[in-house]
Design a protein around this nucleic acid. Structure first.
Lengths: 162, 162
DNA sequence: GACATTCTGTTGCAGCGTGAAGTGAATTCG
DNA sequence: CGAATTCACTTCACGCTGCAACAGAATGTC
């Protein structure tokens, strides 16, 4: 419990890197949420859910799969889908093939909503993330994010390099 | 409102980059919080506050400056400091020189707490962020994070390259 | 010197997320 | 078969965060 007088501290430049990344983790989600909230009255997570459904075959997904696709927990998804259902953008019904499973479908209104919200969101992502970077940096960022995700979620579905 | 039939969509590889980064934004904070919560019963933001104070002269800071240093809002900081005060790690008193200002001081117990929590946290940052990356990637990450922060917070204190 | 404005920090309220318990369906095993 | 376990999802209680309204202190203006 006290055997390491000097653990592996960060080098000064690593410390700077980490501070910048920490700042990014604190601020970027808020900035993204702000744009979606202002222009579409949508949370980033809500957007991910609608967007995920819109790209699925039949615009339908099992709740569990949708939770994984949106990088969120199942309870969180359950509540968010409840909200989206109240707003008429998603409907839920039990899977005929397995009574335990709930299937979520994007309604036409929901699809229209994603289509309306997407350009503004994409534009925000561009402005905040891609525009400030050089081409090589954009390429590096993909690899960097994948590798970090590999460490965060070892059983994940983001192959480090493939 | 509907003049752009084709806004600047993301290229396929940009889309992949963004999905990986989005996943990182969703998961990395949780992973960091989990370690601190488990090993030190501390939020990442609480840790940033204590850590910020521990590095300040006299281990003392104005609330506003502390909020900026920890990348959080003032109301958020106010409540967090209240909690930390109840736990005996921070004390608050009005600035004698300006009655509007509140000064926050790290107590000896608070300092001991940071010192105890730091190695585990640093180790987690290493494992999750730095270990998976190559040296050039670590260098790139600093520049990438700075540039994105420059776009997120134009008035920020993170010069793009200096 | 008195009033309005600005600055600093706190408080109240509403919304969101997490983790634990609860419900009901399907599977496994005796 | 029937009971226990596992699985998919929902619900509940709690804590945290952001925003807006608020209170107190300092500054500027006439």
């Amino acid at each position: 419990m006290e055997a390491d007088p000097e653990p592996r501290w960060l080098e000064p430049d690593e410390r700077e890197t980490w501070m910048s990344l920490a700042a990014l983790l604190m601020r970027l989600p808020g900035a993204l949420d702000a744009q979606l909230q202002r222009d579409a009255a949508l949370t980033h997570f809500e957007y991910l859910v609608l967007s995920g459904l819109s790209m699925a075959p039949e615009r339908t997904m099992r709740m569990s799969d949708l939770a994984v696709a949106a990088e969120g927990s199942l309870p969180r998804l359950s509540q968010v889908v409840s909200r989206l259902e109240k707003r008429g953008w998603v409907r839920r019904f039990p899977d005929p093939a397995d009574g335990r499973v709930t299937l979520a479908v994007l309604t036409d209104e929901g699809y229209a909503k994603v289509v309306a919200a997407a350009p503004g969101h994409v534009e925000a992502v561009r402005q905040l993330v891609f525009d400030p970077l050089t081409k090589p940096q954009r390429r590096q960022l993909r690899e960097i994010a994948r590798r970090i995700m590999g460490a965060v979620d070892p059983g994940g579905h983001c192959p480090p390099s493939a």
